[in-house]
Amino acid sequence: MSGFLESLVGFAFWVQVLRISVPYVLAALGGATSERSGVIDLALEGKLLVGAFATAWVADLSQSPWLGALAGAAAGALVALLYGLLVLRWRANQIVVGVAINLLAFGLTRYLLKLAYGSTSSSPPTPGFEGGLAGNPLFWACAALVVVWQPLFSRTRFGLRLRAAGEHPQAAASVGVVVGRVRWAAVTLSGVLAGLGGAWLALDNHGFTAEMSGGRGYIALAAVIMGKWRPAAAALACLLFGFAETCQLHLQAADLGLPTEVIRSLPYLLTMVALAGFIGRSRAPAALGVPEDV
């Protein structure tokens, strides 16, 4: 136990917290954007996974982490496009499609993994950004996004229309806001951000592993709810979850016999408690999941 406490005050521990949190934060910013516009974002998991695969594949081919990250963002956007086509254009059920997209991403990445590398489990090592956290451009990009995203919601034309579209699309439409266009933009943004989150996973691990998103998309969505659909608060919730995960890793290493599952369960439990209204009133955008129909 003392070993664990020592590591808590160490610099390396907190660097690890940040590293673990980055994909959560990126996905959560995307999730908050999509959900505030009124579109449920269960597909975060799939976007992370596809983003990670595309990153590893392109980084391997080009030997450039930059191109890899770019490919990750593009792949995330592509998945978002498919999602938008199904739920915005054809108005299919957002929950069903979200879950199905995740299944699709799961199967497709494994299929492509086999196709590209003949492996069922992982890609060969691929390049990543060198020079630690401080030298990682993706980390700084993520940090900048956290700073910028809240004012994007509250201080820009796009943000105002985004909030209106998610709360009362009919009212927004009645003053000439094209709700569909706002939602398309939000969904695409979410794809790019989650794709970048996937890129982080692949670059940080120097390769792609099957199912490497490991539920992070769902946790990011949980963080969005914990943060009451506000980007900065959601990012904070991600840090909390990242902290819990880091603790779990260290406790596991310390082998205390204490079930680390307890700590691992913390984010899930916290989310359920928040959703039940015990941590202040957590109110979803009023038109969340409601297709636009005036």
Binding site: L160, A164, H168, A171, V175
Partner: peptide, 18 residues
């Protein structure tokens, strides 16, 4: 009423022609 309840008065007023 075609107002977004969670927005402020002025936000509702400018919405669409900000």
């Amino acid at each position: 009423f075609m107002l977004v309840p969670t927005l402020s008065v002025v936000e509702n007023v400018v919405l669409g022609r900000e």
